[in-house]
Write a protein that binds this DNA or RNA. Structure first.
Lengths: 205, 205
DNA sequence: AGTGGTTCCGAGCATTCGCTCGGGTTAGCT
DNA sequence: AGCTAACCCGAGCGAATGCTCGGAACCACT
């Protein structure tokens, strides 16, 4: 398998001007990846579109991979934050458990749909995706969030193997939503997806 | 997004000698993709490792993408065949429904595990994966297999929306297995995965 | 105004890789 | 044997791309 590249940031921007440069580079990299795919993300092009010279790019990122990794890590952190917030809101609702689960599902769908193109390109084309720490830790993070939901809600999962069940249930729901958002199966609208998933989860709890 | 490349075969091998050449190229491409990732699959390298000249490679494949696509399509057809066979065997078992479901799950896990590295590289790195027709049709094919299983088994799924439910259930189980095989979560052994999945599916039927 | 650190610049180097093309070799047939 | 089509060969072309490097411009501080 391909060797994991160096993803460490090279240098920290100190002045405000430099911070803006780095932000512009990250934005442009993400935009380009989402709209034209990984092959279109060339360092020269990113620098040009960001209104920055290629030399400046290499002041803050050791190589191309580190740039893309930073852009993806930022997007992933946003997603995790939104899903976590969604769970908190879900637990606060009076119409448990259906209302809570429904709300949480919608939060996940929204978080993924907002970044649909970026996620598609990342998952399908970025070779070093799994050497980005935020990506590797995602499933653990999600599992922790799910466990928290299980503890705090009044309902409990009744399985012989609650740990594996929670992990699998979360993993399955997440995969199904991701799949549906990215692949858009023609006969499965967003509403139908959410409703069916809610029913299935309720049946399992 | 990147434009879909031409994946049509250029010319058919007629003599046995030529057929062997094509097979060697497909084998080598798959092996290289599985062991070193997509970046390592260069046409010159594939030809060299296959013991064939680069000129001969381009006799039978119009471009690099078509070569990789052909190798992946072959692997996918094998997987579908094994999963379909697994369902037939499952339906013939006396210990329904648990024994059948368990058997089918094992068939899926085995089919995917056998090609673990190849699938990992394909799913993570091959940019044009979704312009391969066998890939695009996979989820439909699987759904049809699942529908067949639902009809032929004595048990029926009792959902308000049986079509969406079957699709989602199949999609979720498939994703969960694929996920588990490719990412090998540390606390989820094969046995634990299969057992938990069987329990969940039984609970949903 | 001087100074040292920070930021920015962009032409071009070095390398890689997909693919062509002109020509040689082999198989199958009469 | 002679002929044609199928098959095979591999040096090298052309284009793309990651990244360097020497130096200019800018900022914050005294």
């Amino acid at each position: 398998m391909t060797q994991a590249p160096d993803l460490q940031a090279k240098k920290q921007p100190r002045q405000a001007r430099a911070k803006a440069t780095v932000e512009a580079l990250l934005d442009t990299a993400a935009r380009l990846l989402a709209s034209e795919g990984y092959a279109a993300v060339t360092t020269n092009r990113v620098a040009e579109l960001a209104g920055v010279s290629i030399g400046s790019l290499y002041e803050y990122f050791p190589n191309k991979e580190a740039l893309v990794a930073a852009a993806l890590a930022r997007a992933l952190r946003e997603i995790v934050a939104e899903v976590t917030l969604g769970l908190r809101e879900a637990l606060a609702r009076p119409d448990q458990p259906r209302g809570g689960i429904d709300h949480w599902m919608r939060a996940m769908v929204a978080a993924l749909e907002q970044r649909e193109a970026l996620l598609r390109a990342a998952l399908r084309e970025v070779p070093f995706l799994w050497s980005i720490s935020e990506v590797r830790e995602l499933s653990n993070t999600l599992q922790q969030v799910a466990q928290e939901g299980r503890y705090k809600s009044s309902r409990l999962v009744h399985f012989e193997d609650p740990e594996a069940s929670t992990y699998l249930l979360m993993s399955m729901v997440w995969s199904a939503i991701l799949q549906a958002v990215l692949y858009r199966p023609p006969h499965l609208s967003r509403e139908r997806l959410i409703h069916t998933l809610v029913e299935m989860v309720l049946k399992l709890l």
